[in-house]
Structure formats: structure tokens, C-alpha cells
């Protein structure tokens, strides 16, 4: 218990986090998409878990708090999961949604 909450331990975690940060910046410079994704988001998840466990002390908190927070993250995934089939697939059999990248018109609010 005490080893988990000593200043030395915190500094160690911080040092690991900084190393991970440097990796996550250097990784994408290779220009390989898979490496970018892994280093950027994989490392983000690792870092977030470390902060949550060691700084927020989820490791010594009651377990159901972790489940609560994970449950909330799952809510976000549920939302994205239910929504992405519509948002990510703009083409359909009988209708077409055109995606235009540039702003085509400037609307002025108000009514004449």
C-alpha cells in the first residue's frame, strides 16, 4: 500500500509518462499509418490508464468506481456504435448525400 502512494512512486510514474509522451510524438514521424495509430492512440490509452490507476488511485479505490467509469466509456462506444452506421455511410440505394468539403455558402441568419 505505502509503496503505491509514496512520492518516489509518483515521480517514477511521471517519468514513464513523459517517456511515453516522447514515443507518441516520435512514432508518427516514421510515417507508417499503423505505427502512427498504435503509438498515438495505443499510448494514449496506456497513459490514461496509468494516470487513472496511480494518480487518481483507482488501484486502491473500491472496484465499482472503476466499473462505473468504464461503464460510462462503454456508453460512449454504444453511442458511436449505434450512430456510425448512419454517419459513416452517407450513400444509400435510393438516395444520395453529397459530401462537399468546402463551405459553399455563407448564410446570414435572420429573416427578411
Amino acid at each position: 500500500m505505502s509503496a503505491e502512494t509514496s512520492p518516489k512512486h509518483y515521480v517514477k510514474i511521471w517519468a514513464i509518462l513523459v517517456v511515453l509522451l516522447i514515443l507518441s510524438v516520435l512514432g508518427p514521424m516514421l510515417g507508417i499509418k499503423l505505427v502512427t495509430l498504435l503509438t498515438a492512440f495505443g499510448i494514449a490509452i496506456v497513459k490514461a490508464t496509468m494516470v487513472a490507476n496511480h494518480f487518481m488511485h483507482l488501484n486502491i479505490e473500491k472496484k465499482y468506481i472503476s466499473y462505473l467509469l468504464i461503464g460510462m466509456v462503454l456508453m460512449v462506444f454504444l453511442f458511436v456504435g449505434g450512430t456510425s452506421p448512419d454517419v459513416l455511410m452517407p450513400e444509400g440505394q435510393h438516395w444520395e448525400k453529397q459530401v462537399i468539403e468546402q463551405p459553399v455558402e455563407l448564410d446570414h441568419g435572420g429573416h427578411e
Binding site: 448512419d86 454517419v87 452517407p90 448525400k97 453529397q98 459530401v99 462537399i100 468539403e101 463551405p103 459553399v104 455558402e105
Partner: peptide, 8 residues
Amino acid sequence: PNKGGDPI
């Protein structure tokens, strides 16, 4: 949609 958004 004209600007890349999605009303859905």
C-alpha cells in the same frame, strides 16, 4: 451537409 456535417 453542405459543409461536411450530418443532420442525422
